[in-house]
């Protein structure tokens, strides 16, 4: 049973079949540093609570932000996903799944729920851009335009493709782990990411000039 194998993480919200191909990263869970911290957290160690917050919040928030394209919603999802982790901590079964895999799965499900309730995309101008003191105003504008264009294109992807592309190409996860998170086969992940990238390239293809790629050596 997949749910049991992922420490009770809820099944993906999609109607996709629940077959489980990759044992994925489960075998690595024994050395999972987050699992060690989670055990310490459950024993009342305040330092572990702080370390887990610092380590895991960026992953959850970053994924939710890319998938949802909305800062306020991404914050809600991040807080909710981690709340579920704190709740399950005393019952965490070591060796069954990596903490991050479990957390990405919960986050992906929460994002899916929100995407399905949502009627339309959210203005991307709301997303604060990370400041870089050494960057010129022109470069910052250029970068902002590129980030907006990428996010708009991501928002246009079908939900499963978006999850797969973000997990693979932005979060940098390996296909077997993505397969576990989305509860699909590795081949299905490869197919989703390939189709997603083709769709992104098509969506962005007409904006080369506007995004300044004609002049850039890329």
């Amino acid at each position: 049973m997949v749910q049991a194998a992922l420490n009770g993480a809820p099944a993906p919200a999609s109607g996709m079949k629940m077959d489980r191909h990759a044992s994925g990263s489960d075998g690595l869970a024994a050395q999972d540093p987050d699992a060690v911290l989670l055990v310490r957290y459950a024993q009342g160690d305040r330092t572990a609570a702080r370390l887990l917050t610092v380590r895991l919040s960026p992953l959850v928030f970053g994924h939710a932000l890319r998938v949802l394209g909305d800062q306020a919603e991404a914050e809600d999802v991040a807080q909710d996903a981690l709340m579920r982790l704190w709740k399950i901590a005393p019952d965490w079964r070591e060796g069954e799944a990596k903490v991050t895999t479990w957390l990405y799965r919960v986050t992906a499900n929460l994002c899916t729920d929100r995407l399905r309730k949502r009627h339309r995309g959210v203005p991307l101008e709301d997303i604060a851009e990370p400041a870089d003191p050494g960057e010129t105003a022109e470069a910052r504008l250029q970068r902002g335009a590129r980030e907006d264009a990428l996010q708009t294109a991501l928002d246009a992807l079908p939900e499963r493709q978006r999850h797969a592309v973000v997990l693979r190409h932005i979060d940098g996860l390996a296909n077997p782990e993505i397969a576990t998170i989305l509860d699909i086969g590795v081949e299905a992940v490869e197919s989703l990411t390939a189709r997603g990238k083709r769709a992104l390239a098509k969506l962005l293809g007409g904006q080369r000039d506007a995004l300044g790629y004609e002049d850039d050596k890329i």
């Binding site: 957290y41 459950a42 024993q43 009342g44 305040r46 609570a49 702080r50 887990l52 917050t53 610092v54 919040s57 960026p58 928030f61 970053g62 932000l65 890319r66 800062q71 914050e75 991040a78 807080q79 981690l82 709340m83 704190w86 709740k87 901590a89 005393p90 997303i127 604060a128 990370p130 970068r143 590129r146 980030e147 990428l150 190409h169 932005i170 940098g172």
Partner: peptide
């Protein structure tokens, strides 16, 4: 570029998450 420049977590969110963690933590 997107991978290299992840969006920073707002400090207020980090504070809320940590407050949840401590509130939910077993003694």
């Amino acid at each position: 570029d997107a991978r290299a420049r992840p969006q920073p977590v707002p400090q207020a969110l980090m504070d809320r998450i940590l407050a949840d963690a401590i509130a939910m933590q077993p003694e």
